[in-house]
Nucleic acid binder design. Sequence first.
RNA 1: GUGAGCGUAGCUCAAUGGUUAGAGCACUGGACUGUGGCUCCAGGGGUUGUGGGUUCGAGUCCCAUCGCUCACCCCA
Length: 422
Amino acid sequence: MKYRTPKGVQDILPPEVSVWQKIENVARRVFSVYGYQEIRPPIIEFTELFVRGIGEETDIVEKEMYTFQDRAGRSITLRPEGTASVVRAYIQHHLYNLPSPQRFYYMGPMFRYERPQKGRYRQFHQIGVECFGEDTPRVDAELMHMLFRYLEAIGLRDLSFEINSIGCRQCRPRYREKLLQFLSSKREQLCTDCLRRYSRNPLRVLDCKVPECIEATKGAPAVTEYLCANCQEHFGSLKRYLEQLGLTFRVNPRMVRGLDYYTRTTFEVLSSELGAQNAVAAGGRYDDLVEEFGGPPTPAIGFAVGVERLATLIMERADTEGPRLFGYFATLGERATEEAMGLASRLRDRGLWVEMNYRPEASLKSQLRKANRMKAMYVFILGEEEIQKGVIRYKRMDDGFQSEVKLSDFVAFITGSMVQES
RNA sequence: GUGAGCGUAGCUCAAUGGUUAGAGCACUGGACUGUGGCUCCAGGGGUUGUGGGUUCGAGUCCCAUCGCUCACCCCA
């Protein structure tokens, strides 16, 4: 085969597209009643935006970005995530002058240069939301509840919600120090990866799956115990609101996110059916990012769902039916085939999906077989005999019933009685 | 970037180192001159991913390479 898609990118073929459309349509419907409006940032941005937003030390920035120089020598990057762009747009267009909170959603492709595996691709798609201008945990709870409602609306159950608070500019450095203190005594027990993490991003050590590391970090201090008074209150209220909303969740003090901009609330929605890449959605608060990007101090929170991951969960449940073919014109001979073109066109004008035979010499048998395979509800048979008599035969494929109508009455007959019964 | 598994017909898979690489599904046609699904019959389809090597002989063994998959790392 001469041409294939590049590694980690794929075609979404029609049966799957109908699942995607459902995922997108339900998102639009659910998010809009919470006041979210669609925003469409570009797919390329200046590289600097992501480096500053996501964090220079993160894996995404260090080794996963699709970066290139444009013809003027500027460094451009295919977006690896959506939040940085939305924050940029929020500031660039002075949207902070509109009444708070300002809420946006977006959907589209993201790009990360990683080795693909189940649920992880180089071009993947996210549906994300961002809410600017409110720091109350009520907004956190509302947003997480909206996510839950959304997942419920597209038919997913058995998902687990995990939440955490990773503190703010005041309390996180303090916790980091405590953790380093604790880990320094355990250094011989840690795996090589964790020794690297120890100096670069010690919070990650808590997330390690190597049994020795899990053992070594058993008594490690939890972030949630070192929150400052404000963060503690924020987190406590959030948990209370979530309970009030009836959303069951688990506090996971070891949950660490891979993007540097998060503050306070972080959360993930996990499925056990997805293999190693088990997060269908994830998000958190980023109260400092707008200011860091040069906007006014503006608290914010958002999440993103992975469309491919949702789609695989839905596909495993089958029943992914697209629209059904209404009618197929089976024709015999040149005259009949020409006549069918006109009739098909008139039915299509009435909004009916119809197909026709294009080869006058094809056998009726082969045409019926084809119509059957296309799952046509009706076959309209037009041959020399019918043309002579001025009629057209119609056949209902479910039960094989057939009869004929005058050609002059055909369109009215079809758009009248038959459409209603189907 | 690291590791493992797998590459045979459009799809799912057979074939102890030994004739001409098979089967099911799908496709086309026939049994049934203009009537689908069920059944039976026939037919078209292959550089066994690619390139080397070992051997009298390689789909099978070895090496390399490409691709796919899963996992690590990390994340949606």
